[in-house]
Design a binder for these strands. Structure first.
Lengths: 140, 140
DNA sequence: CTCTGTGCAAAGCGTTTGCAAACGA
DNA sequence: TCGTTTGCAAACGCTTTGCACAGAG
């Protein structure tokens, strides 16, 4: 089974971005975690790559967001987190415990409805469903 | 036609929050604009109420968010904006011109599907559809 | 070799906090 | 009156920037 990392090297090259160890490390952390904050990316990478600087993480996150390799997710009253663009999914957040999970849910119907209602060309959607998770329902 | 403001006075009282001119002014600005940033709320209120301080706007936004009178919307690469909780709608953002609009789109099907897929109780959803608006399509 | 990316330290902003005075109930 | 809210100024924390050096192509 081939790792995704090679694909991201190609994606970086396609967008005229240089393939640096820092960028590969950032993409690897995001791939592993699904969605992760800047601070957490930095802390994790520092363990195996102590010389990396937080500014570099910020710069690369911005560069790769502009290149549509990454995108941000922001749940209410939580830090900004980042995920890979090719990872099509929505999110569900538990109001009780603050957990944020990915859900593979097809939103194409809703996107179509939105396009019809507005006259926009819709090509993506960022959705966060808010509720209470199984565990918290039992406790509650 | 009765203004919504009276309802919000009641809502504040119900939540044990005092009805101050600052809070009423903030709610009025949000009601007028649909969604608005903190800075814009402050600038608008200052015109008719010059003594208001930015810190007060922040404190009240936070208090009223905690009381579920307001909630935040955050579109990628834009400032946080705020809207009234009772205003059920989703958003559409134009990638070209940055415009953010409200869309009255029924998301109950998607909420049901998400509840089934995850086992969560889902009671709200924050969705931002990303695309290109009519005007930008013509220009583009 | 050239141009992009990195790391550091400093600057920049948006947001929060502490406190005394003012205000709503 | 009593507890909450306000306004100010200072503090904070996250993010960006400028610059010299290092590294990718």
């Amino acid at each position: 089974m081939m790792t995704k990392i090679m694909n991201y090297e190609n994606e970086l090259k396609t967008k005229n971005l240089k393939v640096t160890p820092q960028r590969v490390a950032i993409l690897k952390e995001i791939e592993n975690s699904g969605h992760i904050s800047i601070e957490d990316i930095y802390e994790k990478i520092k363990k195996t790559y102590p010389s990396i600087s937080l500014a570099t993480v910020y710069k690369n996150i911005n560069t790769m967001q502009d290149a549509h390799i990454l995108r941000s997710v922001k749940a209410p009253s939580q830090k900004q987190k980042f995920e890979l663009c090719d990872d099509k999914h929505v999110h569900v957040a538990c109001q009780e415990c603050g957990k944020l999970e990915d859900v593979r849910l097809d939103m194409s119907e809703a996107m179509k409805a939105c396009a019809e209602a507005t006259g926009y060309d819709i090509y993506d959607v960022s959705a966060i469903f808010i509720g209470t998770c199984k565990e918290c329902k039992q406790k509650g």
